Amino acid sequence: MPTTPIFWKNKTVDIEYQWVNEERIDSPIIVFLHEGLGSISLWRDFPLNLCKELGVRGLVYSRPAYGWSTPRGVKEIWQNDFMHQQAMDVLPKVLEALQVKEPVWILGHSDGGSIALLAASHHPHLVNGIILMAPHIFVENLTISSIEVAKQQYLHGDLKGKLAKYHQDVDSAFWGWNDIWLNADFKHWNIVQEISSIQCPLLAIQGFEDPYGTMAQIDGIKEVVSQASLVKIPNCGHSPHREQPIIVQKAVKDFLQLHEALI
């Protein structure tokens, strides 16, 4: 995958990125923001399949510390505002580096969904609308319990081996995510009021069997962002695009057509 440099946290980091369906040069752009342990490759073929179905372009990138983007520094510890930094600093710099001049649609999964919410709140001029899958707007006990399980699977099970093929530095990706989510201070993280300023179209998708979050997450979004549309999927866990791709694809297509993003 190609990389593009951005200046972040007083240093230059390389960002792994990929354009999909890029021949549709006059179509809307969807930017895909991966989950807390994700990367370009962990999206698999979902961005390409979705963009071809919709007739749009897609931009997928691995955030710093993930995939083949620059790993975390040896002494770099993420703070409670790590998702704010991604939304308010990294995302705009990636768009600038790749010469994306028009507002984009953002599709974010899990942490990527939270980053999409923050981007729409703080940089409304960059965002046409947002599509969220299993986003977080506050910390639930269920989430913490599942992340603690993931830690044990990484230390004593096969999770590290499974993730290693998707990241050049798997410890950089895993511990950056796991350490901050299990930090006692992070239990107070909450962006509910912060996202109440969002004016753009919003679609939020959640599975009923998600071990990392309940319907309280997207119901909470609807309470403060009145134009939000919700899709609640039975027999679906934390990755709706992998577990129920047909439902997700239809929901996204209907949403974009409703807001005239698709001709």
Score class of each variant (00 low, 15 high):
Ile205Phe: 05
Ile25Val: 14
Val248Tyr: 03
Lys187Tyr: 01
Leu182Ile: 04
Ile77Leu: 15
His34Trp: 07
Ile218Glu: 03
Leu182Gln: 13
Leu118Ala: 09
Glu23Gln: 14
Ala184His: 11
Lys93Tyr: 07
Val225Arg: 04
Cys200Ile: 13
Ile205Leu: 11
Pro28Val: 06
Val139Lys: 03
Gln199Leu: 09
Trp43Cys: 07
Asp26Met: 09
Val224Asn: 08
Pro47Gln: 06
Ile29Asn: 05
Leu107Gly: 00
Leu142Ile: 15
Pro245Cys: 05
Leu59Asn: 03
Gly55Pro: 08
Pro234Asn: 11
Leu91Gly: 03
Lys9Gln: 15
Met133Asn: 10
Leu59His: 01
Tyr166Val: 00
Leu230Asn: 07
Gly157Thr: 02
Glu35Arg: 10
Leu59Gly: 12
Phe186Tyr: 15
Ser196Leu: 02
Glu53Thr: 15
Ser41Asn: 15
Val74Ser: 12
Glu35Ile: 09
Phe7Lys: 12
Ile221Trp: 00
Asp89Trp: 04
Arg24Val: 11
Ala184Asn: 14
Asn49Ala: 13
Ile191Met: 00
Ile144His: 03
Pro64Ala: 11
Ile130Phe: 11
Gly176Ala: 13
Tyr66Glu: 00
His188Ser: 14
Gly112Tyr: 04
Phe46Trp: 10
His122Val: 05
Asp26Thr: 15
Gln249Val: 04
Leu159Gln: 08
Gln257His: 09
Ala204Trp: 01
Glu35Met: 10
Ile137Gly: 01
Ala87Ser: 14
Gly67Val: 01
Ser39Pro: 13
Lys11Trp: 05
Val100Ser: 08
Ile137Pro: 00
Gly157Asn: 08
His136Lys: 00
Gly112Met: 06
Trp177Glu: 00
Glu23Ser: 12
Trp175Lys: 07
Ser239His: 05
Glu140Ile: 06
Pro201Thr: 01
Ile180Leu: 10
Val225His: 08
Lys151Met: 09
Leu42Lys: 14
Leu95Ser: 05
Val60His: 03
Ile131Trp: 10
Val13Cys: 08
Tyr154His: 08
Val56His: 05
Asn128Leu: 13
Val127Lys: 02
Val104Asn: 04
Pro28Ile: 05
Asp179Cys: 07
Val224Cys: 11
His188Ile: 07
Ile246Gln: 12
Lys222Leu: 12
Ile25Lys: 14
Ile195Leu: 06
Tyr61Leu: 14
His34Ile: 10
Gln85Phe: 06
Glu96Asp: 15
Gln217Gly: 10
Gly220Asp: 01
Ala87Arg: 05
Val60Pro: 03
Pro201Tyr: 01
Lys11Asp: 09
Val90Ala: 12
Val170Gly: 10
Ala204Thr: 01
Trp177Arg: 07
Phe7Asn: 13
Lys165Met: 11
Ser69Leu: 02
Ile218Tyr: 09
Val127Trp: 05
Phe46Pro: 07
Pro64Asn: 12
Leu163Gln: 00
Val20Phe: 02
Arg242Tyr: 11
Arg242Phe: 13
Ser196Met: 11
Ile77Asp: 14
Ile137Val: 15
Glu102Ile: 06
Gln257Pro: 05
Glu209Thr: 11
Phe46Val: 03
Met83Ile: 09
His125Asn: 15
Phe186Val: 06
Ile6His: 02
His84Ser: 10
Gly67Ala: 02
Gln168Lys: 14
Gln153Lys: 12
Gly55Lys: 03
Ser69Thr: 13
Val100Asn: 09
Arg72Val: 06
Tyr61Glu: 12
Leu155Tyr: 01
Leu203Arg: 02
Ile40Gln: 08
Pro28Leu: 07
Pro92Lys: 02
Pro92Val: 06
Trp181Pro: 06
